Computed example of a mutant assay.
Amino acid sequence: MRSLLLPFTLISALVLIPTCSCAMMNNNGPNHNSSLAITTTSSLLTYHKGPLLTGPKSINVYLIWYGLFSPMQKSTITSFLASFNPISHQSPSVSTWWKATQAYKDLRGRTVSSTVRLAGQASDIKSSLGKTLKRADIAVLVRRAISSKVFGVDPNGVYLVLTSQDVTVERFCMGSCGFHDNLAVSPRVRVVYAHVGDPATQCPSLCAWPFAAPAYGPPGQPVLRAPNGIGTDGMVMNIATLLAGAATNPFKNGYFQGDPLAPLEAVTACPGVFGAGAYPGYPGKLFVSATSKASFNAYGAGGKVFLLPAIWDLVSMSCKSLT
């Protein structure tokens, strides 16, 4: 770890946590009529003929930790990003979830990259731009990290800014749990960046459901136990959502439906769906740890488990979940 002139600290190590023993059982949820299952608000995501983040190169994620995060938060999120490697993970896995993006192809028939990896990390623990940010400040942080050579220029990268629970970002928790966009770093090169905040204290009901009671919706549905903490698991779900959206619609002319400034994308086209039989207020059938009683649907690196949202599957033309 080394300090730079700019308020970033470069992190070189990927931290994994020890393997845990997790006996599982199915969560069948309440009895319900299958006709009530959630359907996407779109019957088709339209391809607008723009570039995607395609293989054979991996999608490289560059993390900027803005504010203070606990070691457990960092290890969980970096373990999640390590989980896209399909080697030695129990099924269903994070890499299994990502396979749904392989149906998304560009004009040349190239698919979204099958691999995602953590390529670099930097910390701004002093919150150098303050604790109340505009969305434009997220681009400033990314541009600064690139111009100072903390990170290189990577057209197949996603520069991901994560903000701690005491940092507010414009529109976060106001109908949004994060966003992705792109910016020019040279006359010929644009890069993709994204933001996800920690919702633990600001809006768990919006950005960490089903691990927090919803502010609105059907009463009486149980709140599920989070495997890694409400805020952290909320961030993981939203990072997954943004990575899928950024890969399939990186420059606002890829796969989406509706307004390009507020589009339905690969995951946001399947709101509230995490498992089979989902319907409004019920996330669907999930696994439940026999020991921790936490709900999840994907195994990951370092013995971690995660809850990941459904992806719109271009093959079956439906929301595809892991359970």
Rank of each mutant, 00 (worst) to 15 (best):
Gly152Met: 03
Gln202Ala: 15
Asn297Tyr: 05
Ala37Pro: 01
Pro155His: 01
Asp181Val: 02
Thr9Phe: 09
Tyr255Pro: 06
Ala139Asn: 08
Ala266Phe: 11
Ser289Asp: 13
Ser147Gln: 14
Asn85Asp: 13
Ser75Arg: 04
Ser93Gln: 03
Phe256His: 14
Ser83Leu: 07
Thr241Val: 11
Lys304Gly: 06
Val112Phe: 03
His89Gly: 00
Thr40Ala: 12
Gly120Arg: 07
Pro204His: 03
Thr323Cys: 00
Trp65Tyr: 12
Ile230Val: 15
Ala103Asn: 12
Val167Cys: 10
Leu242Asp: 12
Arg117Gln: 15
Cys270Gln: 01
Val223Phe: 08
Asp166Arg: 09
Gly300Pro: 07
Trp98Asp: 04
Leu314Lys: 01
Gly217Trp: 06
Ile38Gln: 15
Leu45Lys: 01
Gly302Trp: 14
Asp313Phe: 05
Tyr193Thr: 08
Phe172Ile: 13
Lys304Ser: 08
Phe256Ala: 04
Ala269Glu: 01
Ala301Glu: 01
Leu264Pro: 00
Asn60Trp: 01
Met317Asn: 11
Ser123Tyr: 13
Ala278Cys: 08
Pro187Leu: 04
Leu44Trp: 02
Ser176Glu: 14
Trp65Asn: 06
Val94Lys: 01
Gly217Phe: 08
Ile230Trp: 02
Phe172Tyr: 15
Ala100Gly: 09
His180Gly: 02
Pro214Cys: 06
Pro214Thr: 05
Ser95Thr: 01
Pro86Ile: 15
Val161Ala: 07
Ala13Cys: 07
Thr101Ser: 08
Leu162Arg: 02
Leu14Glu: 12
Trp98Ile: 03
Gly234Pro: 11
Val116Phe: 06
Ile138Pro: 14
Ala103Lys: 06
Val196Lys: 12
Ile64Arg: 05
Thr101Lys: 09
Arg190Ser: 12
Gln73Phe: 04
Val161Glu: 03
Leu14Met: 12
Lys304Asp: 09
Ser128Gly: 12
Lys285Cys: 02
Pro227Ser: 10
Thr78Ser: 14
Ala298Glu: 05
Pro155Asn: 11
Ser93Ala: 09
Met235Val: 03
Gly284Phe: 01
Ser93Arg: 00
Ser42Trp: 09
Pro187Phe: 10
Ser147Gly: 11
Ser93Leu: 03
Ser316Cys: 08
Ala294Asn: 03
Gly272Met: 02
Ala194Gly: 15
Pro222Cys: 04
Trp65Lys: 04
Ser91Met: 11
Gly277Val: 07
Tyr62Thr: 13
Asn28Thr: 05
Pro71Glu: 07
Lys285Arg: 13
Leu243Trp: 11
Leu107Cys: 13
Leu129Arg: 05
Arg110Asn: 13
Asp198Asn: 12
Ala310Trp: 01
Arg108Asp: 14
Leu308Gln: 01
Val112His: 05
Phe84Ile: 10
Asp106Tyr: 13
Arg135Ile: 04
Arg110Pro: 15
His180Asp: 09
Asn238Leu: 04
Gly234Tyr: 04
Ala213His: 10
Ala208Ile: 06
Pro309Gln: 03
Ser43His: 01
Gly152Phe: 07
Asn228Ala: 11
Ala139Cys: 12
Pro155Gln: 08
Leu36Gln: 13
Leu16Trp: 10
Lys57Leu: 13
Leu107Pro: 12
Tyr159Cys: 06
Ser164Cys: 09
Tyr47Thr: 04
Thr101Leu: 15
Ser75Phe: 07
Phe306Ile: 00
Ser95Val: 00
Gly272Asn: 05
Cys22Ala: 10
Lys293Arg: 11
Ala136Gly: 14
Leu52Glu: 03
Lys99Ile: 01
Tyr193His: 13
Thr323Ala: 00
Lys57Arg: 10
